[in-house]
Amino acid sequence: MSGAFCHIAGVGLLGPGLPGWAASIPVLSGAAPWVPAETVLPPPPLLPPTERRRAGAVTRLALAAATEASAGLDAAALDTVFASSNGDGATLGAILEALTAEGSDVSPTQFHNSVHNAAAGYWGIGTHSMRPSVSLGGHDDVLPLGLLQAAAQCAAWGRPVLFCAYDAPLPPPLDACHPAAFPFAMALVLRPGREGGLAGLRLWHQAEDCAAPATRGALGEALEDGNPVARALPMLEALAAGRPADLCWPLLDGGAVCAALSPC
């Protein structure tokens, strides 16, 4: 069978009414109802106080999911793939306003925080990791494409990979250009071997379109269209319920990323 195969060995999650992977398993598996609530961003315990002050809300969002997924593992030993469509929109918006306002200067801290790999940079500082890290964009396809690349890395190099996808709404007036309703982040630790794994995951890209899923649950109906990263929900629901799933994410310009999830 073709595709990149790996095992899921850790999960992190943060979204509206989903305050962490472990805390959300009852909701994701259908054992408890989903109760809407704002996404609460915890302060990042990883970072020293100076860096904590500099890191923006989007970085806190990413690090929360990444920290939960890698709990109990040697975080500094993981290669990382960070994926976000918008990156740090608040910082970008502030710079764009400064560039437009007469006599206004760009803030140096905002400028270095504006790079798309800012969250990855803070992860490296916080975990003292010197492992390779890549940051990807992907607009509305950022979740499936980022996951595909993370699985490719894991399969190609035979090393564990932390995948972290995160997105937060852009500030006005950019919010009208790429609407998002709430912040959402998810992270997976992918391993080449199955020891300690929750599920096997095979991923591939196909040029053929895939049909939209027949039905969505209440959770999917409420959240999937509100943030590009929330497209992970069908996979997370299957993972939480411990059931196998064939997943398919249609892409913007046609074709799809497909996944087969098989619980260990």
Binding site: N117, S135, G137, G138, A152, Q153, A155
Partner: peptide, 30 residues
């Protein structure tokens, strides 16, 4: 009609695509 991916790691972005390309090729995804 294969996958399209964007790397944005500041000033290493262009070089890093070569390493990511190697991963895609080695994993047999293209």
């Amino acid at each position: 009609a294969g996958p399209a991916l964007c790397v944005s790691t500041a000033c290493t972005s262009g070089a890093r695509t070569v390493l990511e390309a190697a991963a895609l090729l080695r994993a047999g995804l293209c």
